[in-house]
Design a protein around this nucleic acid. Structure first.
Lengths: 122, 122
DNA sequence: GGACTATTTCAAGTTTATTTGAAATAACAT
DNA sequence: ATGTTATTTCAAATAAACTTGAAATAGTCC
């Protein structure tokens, strides 16, 4: 029945563990807020494509201009495609570009380096 | 002209730095292979949604059955939606479910814990 | 077995991400 | 100014991710 003393509604050990942490609401309240979650998940989103991850890993080794990133990825990739992906990394704050004469040289930001360091441990 | 001695084709300092690392090809060769990049980016992909990130952060604090995850997220979320997202985390190897009587209790795997630890640093 | 609860699966629709090719910008060299 | 190279932007097409509601499974309780 529904109206019973709700003992069996939830696994016992879990219920006790939850209560020692302020219950489900207590656990929920301790988590980052909506805005923070969105920021963090955007960073993960930027790294969620093998191509972009590869670009990040290369830039951590060595800052590069777009044409060298292109060479590193192989000749098949189009400029507009590459630019699209670079832009996603830039918007997420993981890389930053600096103009140098004809070229724009991209390098990882500090959070960019941090984020990539993790990948190695996964 | 195109046929010149190619000195100005690439920023000088970058070219030198690259060469000390085996050139662009040397840098590319030191990166993880296709399969590894796909695995790692799948993990980032799994964390690229605020809802899933929130679920992960909660499970790191406390393993929970689906109905408690649902309670934690608020009553509005549908069962099928929740199940969909849980499944993405499971497929990425970030969580693991264990049946206990009526319930399935999800807990982060070791890589799951590692991955979430990063989020805090971003 | 039959009713009930927890969870998953499925298919259809919607939204978001990605690719493509062409055109635009920006800097540099002549 | 013109031409050239590096890079970005745009719009249209394609593909992938996400949401929804209904139906299916699987376990528990009587």
């Amino acid at each position: 029945m529904k109206g019973d003393i709700l003992d069996t509604e939830i696994p016992e050990p879990i219920r006790k563990q939850c209560e020692s942490k302020g219950g489900i609401k207590g656990i929920a309240k301790a988590l980052p807020d909506k805005k923070k979650l969105e920021e963090q998940s955007q960073i993960f989103q930027a790294l969620s494509d093998p191509l972009r991850l590869k670009i990040m890993l290369a830039l951590v080794e060595q800052p590069l201009c777009v044409c060298l990133i292109k060479e590193m990825l192989g000749p098949k990739i189009s400029d507009s495609k590459l630019s699209y992906h670079i832009n996603i990394l830039k918007d997420a704050g993981l890389i930053d570009g600096q103009r140098q004469a004809s070229w724009i040289i991209y390098a990882p930001t500090k959070p960019g380096k941090e984020a990539v360091k993790v990948a190695g441990r996964l």
